[in-house]
Amino acid sequence: MEPPALALHTENLTKTYRTGFWLRQKVTSLNQVSLTVYGGETFGLLGPNGAGKTTFMKLVLGIIRPTGGGGTVLGRPLGDRLIKARIGYLPENPYLYESLTGWECLELMSTLHQVPRSVQKQRLPELLDLVGLAQQAARKKTLRRYSKGMLQRIGLAQSLVNDPDLVLLDEPMSGLDPLGRYQVREIILQLKSQGKTIFFNSHILSDVEHLCDRVAVLARGELLAVGTLDELLGSGQTYQVQGRGGTADRLAEWIDNLAYQGGFWQGQLRINLPEFVQGLADTEAELLNLNLERQSLEEFFVQQLRQRGYTQSV
């Protein structure tokens, strides 16, 4: 099998700003970040506020230029103007013309992307239906009368008017209520089913865990970890066990964090499962419950920050 195509690749990407009255102070927003995103995958970039997530996305889009390093987007160098026609982008706080209706907004964006009128007639209704704004009331309502969730959805629709190969979403669930977050998640899952490459920043870890094929953790401009959830969190070979009978001394040989009271016990299995089951068979202990578990993405995220001394970010 051929390896998957690279949608995005960066090598030692660095961005340093100069600050202060005489611009003599340097602040490194991104420090030698090397990252690869494959075609057709959904990739989540995690990090606390100020981690450098938006800076990374602006560098990918060519809005700002790197201080060091480089990379490619869909096979072209960062900042290449020609590649922008194949990218969709939703900023964290989309600035849209409030006097336009939802339909007019998409019409304007399609025209700016030079989408033919004949294609617009078919694509715009499909996009409004995708984001749940196909009703006449929503199409004709001006954007100043849209709720936060509706603005986020029309913003997502405008990022898709050019039928992009790569979709970049900056905090797409930011400020949304639970229903709004659910709706945006469903839209991203639909785009994923269409084979789109989706890259999004977020600090809402439950959404990332639900949606992404791979994730990366960024803090203070440095990349701390990259991988699939199984690679980062483990494949789930930790067992929580509960039972009764036996002796605490014998059970402590097999179980970590053993709690033993009134003949009942529970804890975390230390040895492999077949060995444990065989050991129980040789005692009077009885296994009542067995659960396969692994740490959550939130626990992993906090652990990564604390291990590297980012206590103020947690």
Rank of each mutant, 00 (worst) to 15 (best):
residue 105 C to A: 11
residue 212 C to Q: 01
residue 143 L to N: 07
residue 168 L to H: 06
residue 119 V to C: 04
residue 214 R to K: 04
residue 227 G to N: 06
residue 285 A to V: 06
residue 253 E to S: 09
residue 82 L to R: 14
residue 104 E to P: 00
residue 90 L to S: 06
residue 276 F to N: 08
residue 151 L to F: 08
residue 206 S to W: 13
residue 54 T to Q: 07
residue 173 M to S: 07
residue 136 Q to D: 07
residue 197 T to R: 06
residue 77 P to W: 02
residue 293 E to F: 02
residue 303 Q to V: 08
residue 265 W to E: 14
residue 257 N to Q: 15
residue 263 G to I: 13
residue 190 Q to N: 12
residue 55 T to Y: 10
residue 210 H to E: 13
residue 10 T to R: 00
residue 207 D to N: 09
residue 60 V to D: 04
residue 225 A to R: 02
residue 313 S to F: 13
residue 105 C to M: 13
residue 76 R to W: 01
residue 141 K to E: 09
residue 248 A to D: 08
residue 80 D to F: 00
residue 264 F to P: 11
residue 196 K to V: 05
residue 312 Q to K: 15
residue 131 V to F: 04
residue 153 R to T: 09
residue 309 G to A: 03
residue 246 G to S: 06
residue 36 T to E: 10
residue 304 Q to G: 03
residue 191 L to H: 06
residue 297 L to S: 12
residue 283 T to P: 15
residue 74 L to M: 04
residue 1 M to P: 13
residue 64 I to S: 07
residue 202 S to L: 03
residue 191 L to K: 02
residue 113 H to N: 10
residue 148 K to D: 05
residue 248 A to F: 06
residue 203 H to F: 12
residue 307 Q to M: 00
residue 202 S to Y: 00
residue 298 E to M: 10
residue 51 A to N: 11
residue 301 F to V: 01
residue 162 N to M: 01
residue 77 P to H: 03
residue 251 L to G: 10
residue 305 L to M: 04
residue 183 Q to D: 04
residue 32 Q to I: 07
residue 36 T to R: 03
residue 82 L to Q: 14
residue 158 Q to S: 00
residue 152 Q to F: 07
residue 222 E to M: 14
residue 102 G to D: 06
residue 113 H to E: 13
residue 60 V to F: 06
residue 204 I to K: 14
residue 122 Q to M: 12
residue 14 T to Y: 13
residue 215 V to C: 04
residue 279 G to Q: 11
residue 37 V to H: 14
residue 228 T to G: 14
residue 123 R to N: 10
residue 273 L to A: 02
residue 48 P to R: 01
residue 148 K to R: 07
residue 305 L to V: 05
residue 284 E to C: 10
residue 197 T to Q: 03
residue 10 T to N: 03
residue 109 M to H: 04
residue 229 L to F: 11
residue 223 L to Y: 15
residue 108 L to S: 00
residue 84 K to L: 14
residue 84 K to N: 15
residue 73 V to H: 04
residue 182 Y to N: 07
residue 97 Y to R: 03
residue 36 T to K: 00
residue 37 V to G: 08
residue 108 L to V: 01
residue 63 I to M: 00
residue 174 S to C: 12
residue 103 W to N: 11
residue 216 A to L: 02
residue 293 E to Y: 02
residue 250 R to P: 08
residue 195 G to I: 09
residue 188 I to F: 14
residue 232 L to F: 12
residue 35 L to Q: 03
residue 34 S to E: 05
residue 251 L to V: 10
residue 236 G to T: 08
residue 136 Q to A: 14
residue 53 K to M: 03
residue 2 E to D: 15
residue 145 R to Y: 12
residue 83 I to Y: 13
residue 232 L to P: 10
residue 153 R to W: 01
residue 248 A to W: 02
